[in-house]
Simulated scan of single mutants.
Amino acid sequence: MFTVMIRTAILYSLVLLTMRLMGKRQIGELEPFELAIAIMVSELASLPMQDLGIPLIHGIIPIITLLILQTIITILELKSDLFRRIICGKPSVLINKGKIDVNELRHQRLSFNDLMEELRLKGFYNLQDVEYAVLETSGELSVLPRTDTIPATKKDLNIQSQQEKLPVTLILDGQICKENLKVIDKDISWLESQLKRNKIENANKVFIGILDSKSKFYFQLKD
């Protein structure tokens, strides 16, 4: 039993490392060759876990080989546009200037209902609101709406606005994130002043404290 646990932990760590090195894509965003490698890695890892008669190294070596292969393919993709087209294909324009390309739709083995479903998921319920729709190599649908249907922005209305910033976590479960304070060029004294302003005795009582995108201190107490 202990041997099985150790083998499982080793293989899990190796698969986790492999997937991290492959990048941060979600499963739905993987290119075909990346999805194939992900499936093969999972299968190769599961066999030595289930069968103790299979040497552990017989699972480790193929996984590392696939990681090296994926790295080589990625490098070749960056170097050669032709190689990328061969491996990943190229984006397909399904709607061009507001008109559905029926031949391309058939070529991609998509029905009209499939296209409408993808458009609805992107927030477009009327076909006439779409100028271009492109099926990317990852399977995602990119949509460019008609210009006259795009909501007016603050820039269009000549409204002055300040650029928002990324929110930063300052307190998490009562613990002060000192590194994040340095990121925003603040110190603990500043944070304590924010707590006092909100009538909070100390950070231990705070479940989450964030400097939001508008540079305002947001918090939620533990109780």
Rank of each mutant, 00 (worst) to 15 (best):
T18H: 02
G28H: 14
T8A: 14
I61P: 06
L82Q: 15
I39Y: 10
L78V: 13
I27V: 15
A38H: 06
P48H: 00
K79D: 07
E34R: 03
I61K: 03
P32N: 01
R109N: 15
D81Q: 14
Q70H: 10
L82S: 13
T65N: 15
H58K: 09
L76Y: 09
K79I: 13
I87P: 07
L78R: 15
L110C: 08
I37T: 12
L30V: 08
L17Y: 11
I6E: 09
N103P: 13
P91S: 02
L11Q: 00
I60A: 01
I10F: 05
S80Q: 08
H107E: 10
L66D: 01
K99T: 15
D101R: 06
K99A: 09
I6N: 06
S92K: 09
I37M: 05
P48T: 00
T65V: 12
I95N: 01
S111Y: 07
S42H: 08
F83C: 05
D101F: 06
M19E: 01
I100W: 05
I37N: 00
I100D: 03
G98A: 07
G98L: 06
S111Q: 12
K97A: 13
P91M: 02
Q50D: 07
L11W: 00
I61W: 02
L76N: 04
L16M: 14
I6S: 12
I37Y: 01
R20E: 05
H58P: 03
L14F: 05
C88H: 08
I72Q: 04
K97C: 11
G59D: 00
K90I: 11
Q26Y: 10
